[in-house]
Design a protein around this nucleic acid. Structure first.
Lengths: 152, 152
DNA sequence: CTTAATGCAAAACTTTTGCAAAGTT
DNA sequence: AACTTTGCAAAAGTTTTGCATTAAG
């Protein structure tokens, strides 16, 4: 954790940005909730517990900055809000996501399953791929089991 | 075109919805601009040319209805608006999209390139895939050529 | 005739911006 | 001192809702 903070601090300094207390508090929330996909509002409320004086605008500005530096990924699952997802250390791509249409849970796939598909796109569409967003919609393991139970 | 309208009319009636003139005008705009990815506002302005009395709220309600019936797909490319994409006849899945980070153009891939990946997800993550959203970000053919020209 | 759909305006949200004050180097 | 960052409030923008009126089957 401290190591990640240190690392992010360096990334910021490299572009002559500062790791202010507000930014650090925001990053800590993202680290603590690494598996979640929090909205700006969610993050704001959590950061407020650590740094009560922070403003929502600062959270937005921080998230935008972290997005630009590719420290977090901004994703949108189609409910009216943007969500923010911390990249794993050294990861070059967005995670893939599994969104359950029954219970709304979001699971992450860290592995990059798109290598072959990207090659096809580069070759057949002459499109130079830099990044991707892949989300599957369907039914998660838990909900599948729940259906089996309730109908048997 | 008339055939698609007829088909959509049946789909609506099957759920006891009506194909009102406003809904028909909206569908016609979507058909005419099938390759585009229009926002609700874009669609509203185009529908207004055919049916000047229509209200923006009706367009939103129509698009939501068409979304539910899986006649259109609602997508979000991360600029603050939702965009609407008519499904091809009989298509079961979202198209894939290629978004150019240089010029903002959006290209569609109709072919489904995710068959193998979906199998992997179903097997290794026990997730029952119903649909997917795949967008690549990168540099389109035209912009690649533009760079070559300007630097040579 | 009964229910569904529309248009308008207002409301609800999310996100961005302007600006004076505060903090950093 | 020069510059960046912050908090607040206001603004901007998109989408949804309430409700009286109109239209459809």
């Amino acid at each position: 954790m401290e190591h990640r903070i240190e690392q992010i601090k360096k990334q910021l300094h490299a572009q002559s940005y500062k790791l202010t207390p507000q930014r650090e508090a925001t990053v800590r929330v993202l680290l603590e909730r690494e598996d979640d996909h929090l909205s700006a509002e969610d993050i704001y409320l959590l950061v407020k517990e650590k740094a009560p004086e922070i403003g929502l605008a600062t959270v937005y500005r921080t998230l935008e900055l972290l997005s630009e530096l590719k420290i977090v990924d901004k994703i949108n699952f189609g409910d009216g809000v943007s969500r923010y997802d911390l990249r794993k250390e050294g990861a070059e791509h967005f995670h893939h996501h599994l969104v359950c249409t029954e219970c709304g849970s979001v699971e992450e796939i860290i592995e990059d399953l798109l290598g072959d598909v990207e090659k096809i796109v580069e070759t057949n569409w002459s499109f130079q791929v830099k990044d991707h967003r892949l989300t599957f919609h369907g039914i998660c393991k838990q909900c599948q089991e729940a259906v089996v139970k309730s109908t048997s």
